[in-house]
Design a protein around this nucleic acid. Structure first.
Length: 532
RNA sequence: GAGCCCGUAGCUCAGCGGUAGAGCAGCGGACUUUUAAUCCGUGGGUCCUGGGUUCGAAUCCCAGCGGGCUCACCA
């Protein structure tokens, strides 16, 4: 059965009718939409352009706390106006209790017949539903049960909700609906709202930390003619004006380093990167990355800065350096232990990767330990697998894993002590890898040879090997100072700070496959119906 | 991409071969300090979609769509 039509609403709103479609509403939506039309007939705008709010819920509660000692149990003499979404309604007959929530919190409203008048109370009961935005003018007092409440004199609908809100006790729990309709999730679930506040606080803290230390925030291209700076498959697009294939960046790295060639000493960028790969609890193809680079610093300087930064961020975002994640309590207070990957692997697997240089032998040893590797897995990938299987689960308290084999790191500088090792580290917290850093490779010819090796890997079938970026080589040929660089997954950091096990819980609008059935049922109207 | 699990009212869920259910929300009524208010009454369904088995399918089987978890690739 067709519901109230958009066309009729348009007519009642004094505009031209929508010609072709109507929206099919369920019973509750129809019920509410009827109220919209009835209000219009009464000359009341169900969507007025302005509110007259004088106090947020928080400000009202704070005000009452301040003046209550002077009131002697009486009403606050000053009239205030609060506004928000109706989240609870308790109809007592000749009075009504309601809660409204705004961005600052919630406050209770109390409407009594002998204060608002009989007609106004009837109007409220007739037209105000759960989920509506309203404003209410009145005086603060404390109820018998102790709750600070507005005794309402006047009220006004600010925006009618046609959709009923999710169930009040369990909220919205269906994961798919929570992601597809994040607005409903945010409306219904305090925890969801909390996560994104912490996320914003963390990002603000990072900016402040870096700004205070002389870093320059910059923006480099997201659309790039060549991608690089990480091992990943890119999203590809076509740039019409340039008549050329472009890629969405997989990392910021190569552009930020060009800026150090240009003479900036400290730069950072916080923005989205895109990797055309699998989605799981720790990976989102569109994710947020912090990268910073500092000249005249090496990876040890960077480690010191990173442990300070993350302790600062936790303090700013959560008020503590102790965080709980997946049942682990970890303490971010610096300094964090530095453990070489070589030693960690010797301790956990007995394998010394400087001794076991033959791929076949490494494979046999890994298999003997029970690692899940295929016979054709290349040497660096086996090392990576051993790291993930045997080392990573042991890294609960914050730890820097340092000094990786050169084969794993085509953009990092070799150790002066051992050319088979690069000066690289990854911070692990609660067994989660949250970043990646190294002393940056600034020898253009060494960089070129690493690119050439990547090209060979690519030819051999590694489709995540980086393409050769000759402009980057050209930049390095102008000279880049000794530099330490760092990349941090902002989403994963947020997971840690909010104790969320799934990355989609910390992304406002995570990607899902489009649904064949639309949310709104728009049905065509027949011509004669339109003519009536 | 593979394996396992899920899809029932606006929301949260039960039902798992024999007339489609509960709570909240809705609608009607009672109640002037309630707190998931309470009490009485009541409407509401493409049981994800399409096939099949069966006298009979929400329930069993097959396929598809959407989602979750675990793998695999990756930060």
């Amino acid at each position: 059965m067709p519901g109230i039509t958009a066309q009729r609403s348009e007519r009642l709103a004094g505009r031209e009718p929508l010609p072709l479609f109507e929206i099919e509403l369920n019973e509750q939506q129809r019920q509410r939409q009827r109220k919209v039309e009835e209000l219009r007939r009464l000359g009341i705008d169900p969507y007025p352009p302005r509110s007259h709010r004088t106090h947020t819920a928080r400000q009202a509660l704070d005000r009452f706390a301040e003046i209550e000692p002077t009131l002697d149990g009486e009403l606050d003499p000053e009239e205030i106006v609060v506004a928000g979404r109706v989240t609870a309604l308790r109809d007592m007959g000749k009075s009504v209790f309601a809660h409204i929530r705004d961005g600052s919190g919630a406050i209770q409203l109390y409407l009594r017949r002998d204060v608002v008048t009989d007609d106004a109370l009837a109007h409220f009961k007739r037209f105000i539903d759960l989920g509506d935005f309203i404003e209410a003018a009145g005086h603060l007092f404390r109820t018998r049960t102790g709750e600070v409440t507005v005794e309402v004199r006047r009220f006004q609908l600010l925006a009618k909700a046609v959709n009923p809100p999710p169930e009040k006790w369990h909220g919205l729990t269906d994961v798919e609906t929570r992601y597809r309709q994040r607005y409903a999730d945010l409306m219904a679930n305090e925890e969801t709202r909390r996560i994104f506040v912490i996320r914003a606080n963390a990002i603000r803290a990072i900016r402040r930390f870096l700004d205070e230390r002389g870093f320059l925030e910059v923006e480099t291209p997201i659309l790039q003619p060549l991608y690089g700076g990480a091992a990943a498959k890119p999203f590809t697009t076509y740039y019409n004006a340039l008549d050329q294939t472009f890629y969405l960046r997989i990392a910021d790295e190569l552009y930020l380093k060009r800026l150090l060639v240009g003479g900036y000493e400290r730069v950072y960028e916080i923005s989205k990167d895109f990797r055309n790969e699998g989605i799981d609890a720790r990976h989102s193809p569109e994710f947020t990355m912090l990268e910073f680079y500092m000249a005249y610093a090496d990876y040890r300087d960077v480690m010191e800065l990173v442990e300070q930064m993350l302790a600062f961020v936790a303090e700013e975002a959560l008020g503590t350096r102790q965080i709980t994640f997946a049942g682990h309590t970890v303490d971010l207070t610096p300094p964090w232990p530095r453990v070489s990957l070589r030693q960690a692997l010797i301790d956990t697997t007995g394998i010394d990767f400087l001794e076991v240089t033959d791929q076949r032998e490494l494979y046999e040893r890994a298999r003997a330990l029970g690692a899940d590797v295929a016979p054709d897995t290349v040497w660096p990938r086996i090392i990576d697998e051993l790291l993930k299987t045997f080392v990573r689960p042991t890294l609960i308290q914050p730890t820097f894993l340092i000094d990786y084999p050169v084969e794993l790191s085509p953009l990092a500088k070799r150790s002066p002590e051992d050319p088979r090792i690069v000066e690289r580290f990854q911070p692990f917290i609660a067994a989660m890898e949250v970043g990646n850093a190294f002393t940056e490779l600034n020898d253009p010819m060494d960089q070129l040879s690493r690119f050439l090796q990547q090209a060979r890997d690519r030819a051999a079938g590694d489709d995540e090997a980086m393409p050769i970026d000759d402009d980057f080589i050209n930049a390095l040929m102008y000279g880049m100072p000794p530099t330490g660089g760092f990349g941090l997954g902002i989403d994963r950091l947020t997971m840690l700070l909010t104790d969320q096990q799934n990355i989609r819980e910390v992304i406002l609008f995570p990607h899902l496959r489009s649904k064949p059935t639309p949310i709104l049922n728009l049905v065509p109207r027949s011509a004669d119906e339109r003519d009536q």
